[in-house]
């Protein structure tokens, strides 16, 4: 009996020791091969949790510190305008075929008191009591966004978030967007996107962001087209089979390809991309209007 108990004790000790040593050994190996930072070794997998919080911190900076707390998680999800703007939600390719990204984020910067205050207390709603009401005179409580180059203040947090979790592709994409759009730091944006692609080879979001950089900033249409085609291919490989695929990304890619072909006078190909876009767009009528417009132009001999 005693021998059996001793054996069980030894086995338990071995198992406990293994669970303790294994992650440390893995981290040490990573560090020795130059693929992990001291932060990785120190925090282990916990760094991913920190990465999400740091990413939210960047969004809090985008809102000038007026941001929902962890007690208001629903409001926090609604408030994520930093990512929305960077993902190109203001780019209405479907509607009029023009890229309104620039105007889009300026609009964001200008609007104050975003929407009506909801009742029931908490972030963005009517105060519940005098303490909350008084606190609003002392703390940032007006809905504002960074603008006119102030977006630079988010960048350290995005970079830190990407360092903590290199799999968080949004951090690379969002940082690259603001770097090239607001700060005109195209080289830095490209470098950061390449770093993201090194950690996430062939990620469709990063390829799409790289294509936008080539199209909008470098005007290198050939490279932009190649990148968008690669992004489309990778989207189909990685997202198509999912239960809830990222259709917004697909429509952005298709919209980008259509716009690029319009710029090059390739109207037939643009129409083809618009037809694909129509299937996933939340505004199929607007896309159809665009298709009709291009068909008319094609008939008039304005393009190929």
């Amino acid at each position: 009996m005693r021998t059996a108990l001793t054996l069980i004790l030894l086995l338990t000790a071995c198992f406990s020791l293994a669970t303790y040593l294994q992650p440390r050994q893995a981290s040490r190996e990573l560090l020795e091969h130059g693929q992990a930072s001291a932060l990785d070794v120190l925090l282990g997998d916990g760094r991913r949790l920190f990465a999400n919080e740091i990413f939210a911190k960047a969004d809090a900076y985008f809102h000038r510190g007026n941001y929902p707390s962890i007690f208001e998680l629903n409001a926090r999800r609604e408030e994520n305008h930093m990512t929305a703007a960077a993902a190109g939600e203001e780019e209405h390719y479907e509607g009029d075929g023009h890229d309104h990204g620039d105007e889009g984020h300026d609009e964001h910067g200008e609007h104050e008191e975003h929407g009506e205050h909801r009742k029931g207390g908490g972030h963005g709603s009517e105060p519940r009591d005098w303490i909350e009401a008084f606190g609003r005179h002392l703390h940032p409580s007006v809905h504002l966004h960074l603008r006119d180059g102030e977006e630079r203040e988010m960048l350290p947090w995005l970079q830190l978030s990407a360092r903590l979790n290199p799999r968080q592709v949004e951090a690379y994409a969002v940082a690259a967007y603001w770097l090239r759009r607001s700060l005109n730091k195209v080289d830095e944006a490209e470098q950061f996107l390449r770093e993201g692609l090194r950690h996430n080879p062939g990620d469709p979001l990063l390829l799409h962001e790289m294509a936008r950089l080539e199209f909008q900033n470098r005007k290198n249409y050939k490279r932009a087209e190649n990148l968008w085609i690669a992004a489309l291919k990778r989207w189909r490989e990685t997202e198509a089979g999912k239960e809830e695929p990222n259709e917004f990304l697909l429509s952005s890619i298709l919209g980008g390809l259509a716009q690029l072909n319009i710029e090059q006078g390739e109207l037939t190909r643009a129409i083809d991309y618009f037809r694909q876009l129509k299937e996933v767009s939340p505004l199929p009528e607007a896309v159809q209007r665009r298709i009709d417009e291009l068909t008319e132009k094609l008939k008039a001999g304005e393009g190929r």
Partner: peptide, 9 residues
């Protein structure tokens, strides 16, 4: 950070 010396927040 991204060669930007004005970042101060």
């Amino acid at each position: 950070f991204f060669n930007d010396e004005q970042i101060v927040g």
